[in-house]
Amino acid sequence: MAKNRRHFGIVTVLIVICTFVVYWVLDSVLLKPAAAVLEAGPIDYLFDLHIWLIAFLFALVAVFMCYALIVFRARGDEGDGEHIHGNGTLEIIWTVVPCFVVIYFAWISTTMLIDLSRPNPDEYVVNAEGRQWSWLFTYPESGAVTPDLVLPVDTPIRMDLTSDDVLHNFWVPEFRVKQDTVPGMVTHVRFTPTIIGDYVLRCAELCGTNHSGMLATVRVVSAEDFQLWQSEQLAQVQE
């Protein structure tokens, strides 16, 4: 028993070290795209929390396993190990404790999800239609129709999505959120762009031959530029 206690002491120290190392490795190799919307904040926070959990659980199992394999390797003898069939208390602990952990994760995800999908009375609405293999955007406010998406910065956006043919998916990696477009149905996705720049909208649902090339440019522009652009479009529509 005393021997086991010493083992557990060493293992605990190793697990703590290993957790930080694994977290550090994952954090530096996983190259997330830049975060260009408000929603990326909470999503990336939850992502990070998951990486901590992954690092810890990986360390827990990997360290225990490797340590046991080294310490309890058969040293050329044909004998057997200890005759232990299990330990009810331990089993209950490692069933119940993870229960709380996952419920905690589910709970914060739920509240976050409700926040992310809450309608905003000031949201600016753009309609998007996916079709094999391009996008079409309609601006109800101006009646403009464009193949590229132009959005005002710092404005809550609601995209009303639909499809002309098969399933597609509206995804800009820098915006994090994604949503299928379904023929015969209107689906929604909400985000608030925070950084002016050009992004690529990438269809993320297999939609046939040229799925990989089903892209569109997304231009996030300042409020003034957007007004300007909108009046240009308006003028064009009226012609």
């Binding site: 199992v61 309890f72 040293r75 003898d77 200890e82 299990g86 089993e91 490692w94 069933t95 993870p98």
Partner: peptide, 22 residues
């Protein structure tokens, strides 16, 4: 919740190796 019984397997495997002659 599915992760829970999956975790039980992992921990029980570790318990099997621990104290054995591998």
């Amino acid at each position: 919740l599915v992760a829970i019984p999956t975790g039980v397997k992992f921990f029980s495997w570790l318990g099997t190796i621990w104290g054995g002659k591998v």
